[in-house]
């Protein structure tokens, strides 16, 4: 009876992450190389070792691709990220202000109407944060052609600096951290998390759409 040689199916998440950071032709050769080497490791050391190797190489590759993407066009990428930073800085709170202005102008006249108000505050404002951040993220990703995820991730890092600084500053300045402070603190962390998710989601979506359209163009 012949011994069965274990075969490796590349971890889909690792392969997908590499594809997000590499151009289509580069991803083709990198993923091919990873597949070839991991299959070799799989036949020598088993599936677990091969999977571990694949993941380690994928993470290292993503770091290198990130650095290479930034170094190949530092000025244009910096300009796009700064533009995104200021756009987000000035527009992030606009939908919230609009919703609050509407609520102030229109007083609830029934229970049903009141319920709608509560829903708008509870779900409308957080949704508005995600949508605004996604719009800014989309603009940044579209402008950073081929470096969508790199640009949006850089925007997240740049956007995090003033936010984290403000958070630490507010925490240190308020000796009496009562329930109002804790509530506001949690709200800002929640809002920041939603915004960053929105920006990243936009980068990933634009990247996927571009990959799909370029694949269709290659086939046809």
């Amino acid at each position: 009876m012949r011994p069965t040689i274990p075969s490796l199916r590349p971890p889909p998440l690792a392969a997908w992450l590499v594809e997000l950071f590499a151009s289509a032709d580069k991803a083709e050769s990198i993923l091919g190389d990873l597949h070839e080497e991991s299959s070799d490791i799989c036949s020598k050391s088993g599936v677990v070792a091969a999977r571990r190797w694949y993941w380690r190489q994928s993470v290292k590759t993503i770091f290198h691709l990130f650095g290479a993407a930034f170094c190949s066009a530092p000025w244009s990428l910096s300009t796009i990220v700064l533009m995104g930073f200021f756009t987000h800085w000035f527009t992030a709170t606009v939908p919230e202000r609009v919703i609050i202005a509407i609520l102030r102008a229109q007083r609830p006249y029934s229970n049903l109407h009141y319920e709608f108000y509560v829903r708008l505050i509870n779900y409308g404002i957080p949704t508005a944060y995600v949508v605004t951040s996604m719009l800014v993220g989309c603009v940044v990703a579209v402008l950073a052609k081929g470096r969508e995820v790199v640009a949006t991730l850089t925007l997240i890092v740049v956007r995090s600096v003033p936010f984290l600084w403000l958070l630490v500053f507010a925490y240190e300045q308020n000796a009496d951290r009562g329930p109002i402070f804790v509530g506001a603190f949690h709200f800002f962390v929640f809002r920041y998390t939603l915004e960053m998710i929105g920006i990243l989601l936009a980068g990933v979506l634009v990247r996927i759409l571009r990959s799909v359209s370029s694949r269709h163009a290659t086939i046809s």
Binding site: K26, D33, E37, Q57, K60, G67, S72
Partner: peptide
């Protein structure tokens, strides 16, 4: 990619990642 990585590791005894090879080759 695979052969370049293998050649470097065999001759320099230095572990390199596929990403480092491609980033350098692109440059």
């Amino acid at each position: 990619g695979v052969t370049v990585r293998g050649e470097i590791e065999a001759r320099t005894k230095r572990e390199v990642s596929i990403g480092a090879i491609y980033a350098t080759l692109d440059r």
